[in-house]
């Protein structure tokens, strides 16, 4: 662990401020894209998806303090495993019910 709590504190404070600014920008971009309608529809969808993914990563890194350091390795593994379960369940649901809708709808 870092021996200097004051430095650690300052870094963390800067992390929160950076997180807030990045999250505000990454929220504003998709909202602006939808409100102005400046892009074609596919472009707006991609903007929303990419901005959301980036914002989730910003929140995990700067607000939830999940990084690659040893002390967070267990948390990270738990999160990645949970994400695997989520991908399987959500992906499977969308795949099966999407097919059902396409074939029976």
């Amino acid at each position: 662990m870092s021996a200097d709590p004051r430095r650690e504190r300052r870094q963390e404070l800067h992390g929160y401020i950076a997180g807030l600014c990045l999250a505000l920008i990454l929220s504003a971009i998709p909202f602006a894209a939808v409100m102005t309608g400046a892009l074609p529809r596919a472009g707006i969808v991609w903007t929303i998806a990419i901005a959301a993914l980036c914002q989730v990563m910003v929140h995990f890194r700067l607000f939830l303090h999940i990084d690659l350091s040893r002390s967070h390795r267990d948390d990270l593994q738990l999160i990645l495993f949970s994400l695997l379960i989520v991908v399987l369940m959500v992906g499977g649901t969308l795949w099966v019910l999407g097919n059902q809708r396409a074939m029976m709808g």
């Binding site: 948390d75 999160i79 949970s82 379960i85 989520v86 369940m89 959500v90 649901t93 019910l97 709808g105």
Partner: peptide, 26 residues
Amino acid sequence: FGFWVFLMSDLIIFSMLFATYATMTH
């Protein structure tokens, strides 16, 4: 860490609600 386990189980609940929502969009 124990609390993270709870949060991730909560994440599964939300994911399934999202999946349900996605199948219901039409």
